[in-house]
Simulated assay, not measured.
Amino acid sequence: MCGRYVMARAIGDLVADAEAEADDALELRQSWNVAPTSDVPIVLERLVDDELVRQVHLAKWGLVPIWAKDPSVGVRSFNARSETVLEKPTFRSAVKARRCAVPAEGYYEWQKTGTGKTAVKRPYFVHPEDDSLIYFAGIYEWWKDGSKAEDDAGRWLLSCSILTMASPEETGESEVLDGLHGLHDRLPIPMGRDMMAEWLNPANKEAGPLVEQLRAEAHGVASHWTLREVPPAVGNVRNDGPELTEPVVGLFAE
């Protein structure tokens, strides 16, 4: 799964890297401890005057389906299991028509060691070896707040979710993939640039094959990551700063 991640790039850097455009007034808050329900950047494509345009928007992390009575449902839907995303009522409409990419510099995962009272959860920072951005496969939705006036700019809420899949099997062929296997049984799905172009394109209406292609390519993308143990302070959402990604001595320490 993905429950915390890092996104501290400036908006200009993100726009250039994603080959997208953004509103001049759009501002990104640097964060080394992004948590569900935060406002996060997403990359999507829309048809504007019959031309496909790639854009960066801000969305609430935690998808709120259009039929929801209130936005609180988003607290439980920040991740979407790729195996069931086409059937689950919360996600099935979005995955067919509103797909996005969620950029991140890396994400945190907690590994449980020991049992009972001696059990300890150790946080790890997972990120590309070359410090490039990860683009996770995501979906987005617009939710209308019926209690607000039609001309209220806050009437519409944009929200998103990150797709996940099973972690790699342990094969002994890749230290990174074996490390991911031992870290958690779920993996947020990363995309290469070609896959991202396919995923974002709203003209691709057949979501099923796209989801299968995501899963087929994800482990290859993840094989270029690295893992390192980081300070336990990351477990508190009130802590936020680059020191959270600093390595401590551990199994995957760099």
Score class of each variant (00 low, 15 high):
2 C>S: 02
8 A>P: 08
8 A>S: 08
8 A>M: 02
9 R>E: 13
11 I>T: 07
11 I>A: 05
13 D>V: 13
14 L>R: 10
15 V>P: 00
16 A>V: 06
18 A>M: 13
21 E>Q: 14
21 E>M: 12
27 E>D: 10
30 Q>F: 08
34 V>N: 00
35 A>Q: 01
36 P>F: 06
37 T>R: 09
37 T>I: 10
37 T>V: 13
40 V>A: 03
42 I>S: 06
47 L>M: 13
47 L>Q: 11
51 E>T: 14
52 L>E: 11
52 L>G: 07
52 L>M: 14
54 R>H: 05
55 Q>M: 10
55 Q>D: 12
55 Q>C: 09
62 G>D: 09
64 V>K: 15
66 I>W: 13
67 W>E: 03
68 A>M: 06
70 D>F: 03
72 S>W: 04
73 V>D: 04
74 G>N: 03
76 R>K: 15
76 R>P: 04
78 F>L: 07
83 E>K: 03
85 V>I: 09
86 L>K: 10
87 E>Q: 14
88 K>A: 10
94 A>I: 06
98 R>C: 04
99 R>K: 15
100 C>F: 06
101 A>S: 13
105 E>Q: 14
105 E>T: 03
105 E>D: 05
107 Y>N: 02
107 Y>L: 00
110 W>A: 04
113 T>D: 11
114 G>C: 07
119 A>R: 10
120 V>C: 07
120 V>M: 12
121 K>L: 12
125 F>K: 03
125 F>T: 08
127 H>M: 02
128 P>I: 02
129 E>G: 11
133 L>A: 10
141 E>W: 07
143 W>V: 05
143 W>H: 10
147 S>H: 08
147 S>F: 05
149 A>P: 04
151 D>M: 01
152 D>M: 01
155 R>L: 01
157 L>I: 15
158 L>S: 08
159 S>G: 10
162 I>V: 11
163 L>A: 08
163 L>N: 09
164 T>A: 07
166 A>T: 12
167 S>C: 14
168 P>W: 02
169 E>S: 12
171 T>S: 01
173 E>A: 14
175 E>M: 04
176 V>S: 03
179 G>V: 04
181 H>K: 04
182 G>D: 06
182 G>R: 14
184 H>P: 03
184 H>Y: 12
185 D>E: 04
185 D>L: 04
186 R>N: 03
187 L>Q: 03
189 I>T: 01
191 M>C: 08
194 D>R: 15
196 M>K: 14
200 L>G: 11
200 L>M: 10
201 N>K: 11
204 N>Y: 05
207 A>Y: 07
209 P>F: 06
210 L>R: 15
212 E>C: 06
213 Q>Y: 15
213 Q>D: 11
217 E>R: 15
219 H>N: 11
228 R>Y: 05
229 E>F: 00
232 P>F: 11
233 A>K: 12
236 N>E: 05
237 V>T: 12
239 N>K: 02
240 D>S: 00
241 G>S: 01
242 P>W: 01
243 E>W: 07
244 L>P: 02
245 T>Q: 00
247 P>A: 00
247 P>E: 04
248 V>S: 05
248 V>H: 06
251 L>N: 12
251 L>P: 11
251 L>S: 10
251 L>C: 08
252 F>L: 09
